[in-house]
Design a protein around this nucleic acid. Sequence first.
DNA 1: AAGCTAAGCGTTTTT
DNA 2: CGCTTAGCTT
Length: 787
Amino acid sequence: MPESIDKSGFISLRKKIIESEFSRMNDRQKEAVFTTEGPLLVLAGAGSGKTTVLVNRIACILKYGSAYQSSFVPDNITAEDIGYLEKCLKDKDFSGDRLRKLLAVNPPPAWSVLAITFTNKAANEMKERLEQMLGDESQDIWALTFHSACARILRRDIDKLGLGYTRSFTIYDTDDCARLMRETCKNIDSGDRSFVTKTLLPTISRAKEKNLDPVQYEKAVGNDFRLKKVAEAYYKYQDALRRANALDFDDMLMLTVRLFRAAPEVLQYYQRRFKYILVDEYQDTNNIQYQFVSMMASVNRNLCVVGDDDQSIYKFRGATIENILNFEGQFENARSVKLEQNYRSTSVILDAANAVISNNAGRKGKTLWTSNGQGDKIDVASFDSELDEAQYIADTILDNVRNGGKFSQNAVLYRMNAQSGAIEKAFVRRGIPYRVVSGYRLIDRLEIRDLLAYLKVINNTRDDVSLSRIINVPKRGIGDATVSAAQQIAARDGVSLYDVFSSCEDIEYFSKKCVKIKPFVDFIEEMRALSAEAPVHELVKEVAVKSGYIAALEAENSGESRERTENIGAFVSSAAEYDSLSDEPNLQGFLEECALMSDIDNYDGSADTVTMMTIHSAKGLEFPVVFIAGMEEGVFPGQNADFYPDELEEERRLAYVGITRAKKKLNITYARSRMLFGSTVYHRESRFLKEIPDELKDETDMRSHETTFSMMSNKPKHKPAVDSGFSRPAAAAAQSFAIGDTVHHSTFGTGMVLSVKPMGGDTLLEIAFDKFGTKKLMANFARLKKD
DNA sequence: AAGCTAAGCGTTTTT
DNA sequence: CGCTTAGCTT
């Protein structure tokens, strides 16, 4: 190196340039971004710009490597180079390749980064933002959920586990698992029908999260009679899964970790491949996920986890907050950074959130602050019934829109999906466009599940659960007696149900039934051949038609059957979308995507509709105006909260998550009576509401103190749209209205138009109905007929 | 095997 | 309330 270059001068210039490129971050954020080596815990409060920090940190690593922390100086730097760098700093131009070459110290190739999140949506968002920032180089970065990452790993090497699984394994969702369990453990019948789904499977799930196989679990259980029964069920269940070449959600993690132990070269491959690992929402990780992460990161030790202990809301599915609390103990030389400045909400909203969460004992302790203004007070309103509550929410949203807002700025959040019904009805009545993000997806519909069962059998003939689901759907003369006989033979010979059916000619018992069975087996074989060559959506279409499923629906020719046919059409479209978006589309990949995609993953914020969802689904999102409905004891927090202090704290964290979704305005509502699961229940105001200081709230009591009379108790005629994946066609009612027009509405009957106001491609009408008073409706959504 | 009716039952949050 | 299932009939 030439004498004239001052080493320390170069290093400090390098720091200045890197810092300047990320100058828009606050000091804490910078600290996280520039900690590019070693284990790092980022405790990021709600709305603290966490995603931006993550993305910037990866960008910094990929562009400059460890340059910020390194004292290494390349030999061949010249005075001219220094001049160039100084000019870059002065011009704030950091885009040049030359700059990068001069400054970078061991930058890793792009595919060195594994980013793990919990939803596909978050993964895609991260990928998109990285692509924006890095261009093509981000192509090979893995930004995936835990489950998809494990699926990829297992797809390559699951046979190395030596348990008989093959690469065409099927992923069982909770419904499949319940069917399998009921089938395998018919003798474990406790009389309680929900025993399997409420007790047995969750208990096994916990065992798998601790990486306990049936044998280990049985040992751990000891002499507990009840748990011994669970262990027995677990053994049979796991064996059935193995024979079906199927994995449940927990297996995906457990078997990956076991694969890493059984085949160290597989683990090594990934350890070398991923120099940098980061995990988002770390507070939601469970024990096996911790094992997975620590194995992957143990060589390079460049692990960055981001989370907020106050937002841990998945304890019920095994998440353990200890992973965050113990991070510094588990990873040597770990650093930790707290992000407490909030960029999202007004100080009123933030103060309310802080006040509520401060009632929790088990937390690391953070206090969010913001330099945003105070903002509006929180509107709190109470009602007689959930119907009045829904009406109020609908009216308030219409007011917001009339004052220049957009529907999409409003979100309605609630504790349980069951609460959405009343609100949907009110929206339908007012003509408010909305979208429900629910646990109920397109693929949860009966007809799609049937179709998927066909596809699963085609992909993996060992899948007995799926086969017995569709063997006689539509009716083809193979009834219960035949199926249970076949099941017995399969169990006796240790083969799959499909094997029995396909060799029915050799089995005496089936001599007469073969006429019915043979065509079905031939059909499956034909589709198996097709699946090797045709695109997935064509296969799906063929299956739907040639199985006779569509014909059976058409024969039924009811409104419901037509809807089912439509849904199948939508499913074919989604397969076509998969075909066009996926790098190498195949049936297996499509089935995997179906199993691992949730409704929120398809949520697209760009349509101008109100969003409705549970608070769980809302985590990670933000909206200018948020309504939290059903703030009642018994609903939020739920009944169990009185009994289990831990659950109360989890509910409180959930309340914290809900409150911090709001950017500008928060509305909270509750009702003293509520129709829930078929009967009316009475509740008091939620304790969480009382925990918000009075000076932050504007309270309105809309409850009557005499007889309850509610106009809304008129039953609506419309069945509300269940999902909303398809929003109502906005162009359908492109008619114009004038003041004085007489109109007909399917629910409100006849009325007269009082005012007309154009609004974002639509028209807001104020209509005086003869029997229902004055309502505000959006013309395109209200299905109005002019006289 | 298939289709019908009556009865019963669970209801939090989800990858 | 809405959905599944048991049990009966054809």
